[in-house]
Simulated scan of single mutants.
Amino acid sequence: MSNPATPRRAPKKDTRTALLNAALQLMLDEGYAAVTTRKVAAQAGVNPALVHYHFSTIDDLFLAVFRRGAEAHLARLQDAAESPQPLRGVWEVMSEPRDTALTLEFLALANHRKAIRTELADYSSRFRMLQEQALDKVLKADGLTPHKPSLPTLTVLLAGLPRVLAMDDAVGLHHSRGEVHALIEEYLQRYDLPSAAGDPAYKADTSTGRG
């Protein structure tokens, strides 16, 4: 029988999760350059040796953080693309400030880490496919088949805007922010699929002659 006075060790899975959470928070608070063995261990409240027990290198830690976040992001995008209002759903997922800030950190990191760059390109392709799926659903509902701009081009534009807004936020540039959001809202209401009757967004759509 174990001594009840002896503190229990956290399960390995919980330690790994704590390290991933610690690295993620450091990236958001201080940038990817702050992610070191000692800082991650201190943030997680564990011995530094445990960082290398779970992750052979810091790059392995970065990849694990990225993959966990990317898979969760893909799942949310998939749900949004299949939702009754796919454009609004996809836009809301893509414009989450926390996720956008983290994406910018990984983009900066990818300039120095080939493994991150390869992983980022792979997941970005999958993100774009889901975004195209949402756009295609809306355009087909309207009986439209755009040639210029094409679906891939529209997707690039859709993906780029949240990053520009996030970069503006990072330097405190808020000029015309309200006007930009108002324009986005106008297009979402005008072109997205109508939501269920009784929803305020649906009423806004039908007032423009849609639905």
Rank of each mutant, 00 (worst) to 15 (best):
S56L: 11
A197N: 04
L165I: 13
G31T: 06
A204Y: 02
T6A: 15
A197I: 07
L26Q: 04
H52V: 03
A204E: 11
E105H: 04
L183F: 13
A101H: 08
G209Q: 07
G198A: 02
T36S: 14
D29Q: 14
Q133D: 11
G211R: 05
T37G: 12
K140I: 00
D122S: 13
S125Y: 09
A10K: 11
S176Q: 14
A49F: 12
T57E: 10
L183E: 12
G160H: 05
S95D: 12
A108P: 10
H174M: 09
A166N: 03
A10L: 14
D79I: 00
T15D: 07
A80D: 02
I58H: 06
R16L: 10
R177E: 11
A166T: 06
T100W: 01
A41L: 08
E71L: 08
P84N: 05
K203F: 09
R76F: 00
R190I: 04
V171T: 14
Y187C: 10
L120Q: 11
R76E: 13
A170I: 03
A10D: 09
A110D: 05
L50A: 08
L24D: 09
L77Q: 01
A201Y: 06
V40K: 00
T6W: 13
A18N: 03
T153P: 00
H73S: 04
E96N: 14
G209S: 08
H112T: 09
K39S: 15
P7Y: 06
R128P: 09
A108W: 00
I184V: 15
F66W: 08
N111R: 15
G198K: 03
L130N: 02
P84Q: 07
Q131N: 12
A170M: 06
R163V: 11
A134E: 06
K13W: 01
D205V: 10
T145D: 13
P194V: 09
L139P: 00
D60M: 03
D168Q: 15
V171F: 04
L154T: 12
L157Q: 08
Q43S: 13
A121H: 11
A141F: 09
P86D: 04
A18G: 09
P149F: 08
G198T: 02
D168P: 02
D192P: 04
H181T: 14
D122T: 15
V171S: 07
L50C: 03
Y32F: 15
K137P: 00
A201K: 11
W91S: 08
G172Y: 03
K13S: 15
L157V: 03
S2L: 14
N47P: 07
E132L: 04
L19N: 01
A201G: 07
S195D: 12
A64G: 01
A201S: 10
L87E: 08
E71H: 10
L120G: 02
T17M: 08
R88C: 00
R16F: 04
V51I: 13
R38F: 13
F66T: 01
Y202E: 09
V93H: 02
L161P: 05
H174D: 13
E132S: 08
E92C: 02
M27Y: 03
R117I: 00
L157A: 14
K203T: 14
M129Y: 05
E92W: 01
A81T: 05
S83Q: 07
A10V: 09
